[in-house]
Design a protein around this nucleic acid. Sequence first.
DNA 1: CCTTTGTTTAACCAGATGGTTAAATCAAGT
DNA 2: ACTTGATTTAACCATCTGGTTAAACAAAGG
Lengths: 202, 202
Amino acid sequence: MAQERNTEELIIEAARRIFIKRGLAGARMQDIADEAGINKAMLHYYYRSKEKLFEIVFDEAFSKMVGRLGAIFSRQLPMEEKIRTLIDHYITAIAETPYVPIFVLNEINQQPEMMVKRISSQPAFPDIIAFMKEVVEAGKKGIIKEISPLQLFLNIVSMCIFPFVARPLIQGIFQQDNIQFNMLIEERKKLVGDVIISWLKP
Amino acid sequence: MAQERNTEELIIEAARRIFIKRGLAGARMQDIADEAGINKAMLHYYYRSKEKLFEIVFDEAFSKMVGRLGAIFSRQLPMEEKIRTLIDHYITAIAETPYVPIFVLNEINQQPEMMVKRISSQPAFPDIIAFMKEVVEAGKKGIIKEISPLQLFLNIVSMCIFPFVARPLIQGIFQQDNIQFNMLIEERKKLVGDVIISWLKP
DNA sequence: CCTTTGTTTAACCAGATGGTTAAATCAAGT
DNA sequence: ACTTGATTTAACCATCTGGTTAAACAAAGG
């Protein structure tokens, strides 16, 4: 057999970069081939079509964005501490692959049917539901204010993810360079927790 | 001259629908022509190229998303009330064209240089800056807690816009139909205000 | 050495895509 | 009716794009 054995992985890495940067419609198979330093035909040899390749990249990205929530949720901690660590860890996780959210959200908006398939095969969802039940109970016990757990979830995720989605907008309007932006994000790991906790105080 | 005089506007309306639904890379000139019920050559007759047409649609969408903030900010009201009406009005405005934010954010991420041009020609930005100064002053006077005005702004905009950007995700995970989703948004007009105000209490 | 089997390449293809052009159509002024 | 100038259309073009194919190549086993 010829060449190194990681051609397969080389292709995925290239596809990941190109798809996440340009989206499904904007990505060109030739660009992916160039990025991987191989012939265009190899893409079809290893992964049958553009859609197949995209599906792999998308699934991976989707899990990276949604899946991380589950692991954190399931931790056994008092409500306030649980929420604070959730926010801190989630922002940290997203900051590692900051272009994933806008990619995932845009593709989902292009083909909302995609969601249906992911829902069943996404192990994080049950944990999210469980967390929301905990929130209701904590509300009844008076540990926190009684609020809609869905709205709580939405608020947390909004404040964690949105800054990355709107990154060029923020940096453009407020003239922030990359270092300043990263500091902003760093500060949010605690600040978003403050916002949520102050709201939840009974 | 032939036909009705609104061909020009007819084209823009069609382009708006197609571009916002599919994005620049995903939109086809033929689709826009079909949507407008005219020949493809007319698009080039009235608007020279795909890019030119796109620019018009994008500018319009960008203003719709960012511009609305200015008008609300400039209103003379006590801080708490100002923030509450801002949130209420902004969510209402976005709900009227709910697919604009994901379109704008995605295109900005595709071509961040676009931002540079918009910044100078966007009249809402000065008002945003002015608002942020007010926030600092209100903090010093003890009317509200002393917080980073940028972070405040980010929190507000995040919680207002993100639900629309993540709409299919939310509806998918939590099995919400369109009516339920709209109720969720309706509830947020007050709820997001509560979150922010409770955080700002000195 | 030669066969076999998995891997890689260059050349090619059909359909799509943005854009052009020359001719046709239409309404209004003369 | 005829000219004029804007509007509209059908046909066309060059290029791009996802995908295919046949042949070349490289190892491993016999």
